[in-house]
Design a protein around this nucleic acid. Structure first.
Lengths: 145, 145
DNA sequence: TTAACACCTTCGGCCCACTCGAAGGCAACC
DNA sequence: GGTTGCCTTCGAGTGGGCCGAAGGTGTTAA
């Protein structure tokens, strides 16, 4: 199977700009061109791209990804370094998920709090007496999870 | 309690550059200055900063955060819009966590795979016969979760 | 046949959210 | 009185794309 850049972009849910960027920066070494100089992607390229997207979206800088892909091409003697890189990425990703879950709690709290206000104040049409009161409400009560 | 910018940076695990950036862009409206023009942060500022960090790290653009903080200062009549914003952020964050968990599986697979190679090949000191073989190994076997 | 349309290319500038360096002010200690 | 150590402002630089302009090619369709 071979694909156009557009098809790949759709499949991978990233922009054609990004794909060209990765290709231009040497991260898709097997991509071929057709007779009109258009990029043509084979399944092997999709696999490489999948790894690139995975590593990028878990926060690895492009330069590190380039280095990792170089290691892959250098062969088996680079496995120890690759192992270390993936271990580090694993840790990093676990931390990021954890951070997001902590932040999510704060957001959940806000959603619940606003929902509460909306329900109660629809019932008795309460309007705050002045701005300062509303401010303090937000600052001193709302922001304490 | 009042704090220097350095103390706040440590407490919040962000850089002093970022804090100044948020302040300069109107997102910390209550921060005072001392007699030497140094920023001094009170607990209320930490609460605002906490929200800013939470929203930023869950991917809200600065402009949206500015808007949200404006809404907070405008008082209770903006609660419906704030509710919508937090709902959207909740959804976005859940999606992001999910994406990261999917990527984590790919990374876990790689870690396990490399660990496997390291254990087996330490045992019998296998070295691949050529680069191409190692390449194919990585591309065709490794990248299939 | 020529026009429209849809895709692709390269090149180069723009964007966000920081990040950092330079240049300088002020306070406190040795 | 010099050095350390913090702070300030201003302005430039960075990463990782994003996007528009200008132009090529190929297919359909009047």
């Amino acid at each position: 199977m071979s694909y156009t850049i557009q098809e790949v972009a759709k499949k991978m849910a990233i922009s054609t700009y990004s794909i060209r960027y990765y290709h231009d920066h040497g991260m898709l070494p097997f991509v071929k061109r057709d007779e009109n100089n258009n990029r043509i992607f084979e399944d092997v390229d999709l696999e490489w791209l999948h790894i690139i997207v995975c590593l990028r979206q878990t926060g690895m800088p492009v330069e590190r990804i380039q280095h990792y892909l170089d290691l892959v091409q250098q062969g088996e003697q680079t496995v120890p370094e690759r192992y270390d890189m993936m271990k580090a990425q694993q840790t990093r990703t676990l931390n990021e998920i954890n951070d997001l879950q902590v932040h999510l709690k704060t957001i959940n709290y806000k959603v619940d709090h606003y929902a509460d206000i909306l329900i109660n104040h629809k019932a008795d049409s309460f309007v705050p007496s002045n701005l300062e009161e509303a401010q303090q409400h937000d600052v001193y009560q709302e922001n304490q999870p």
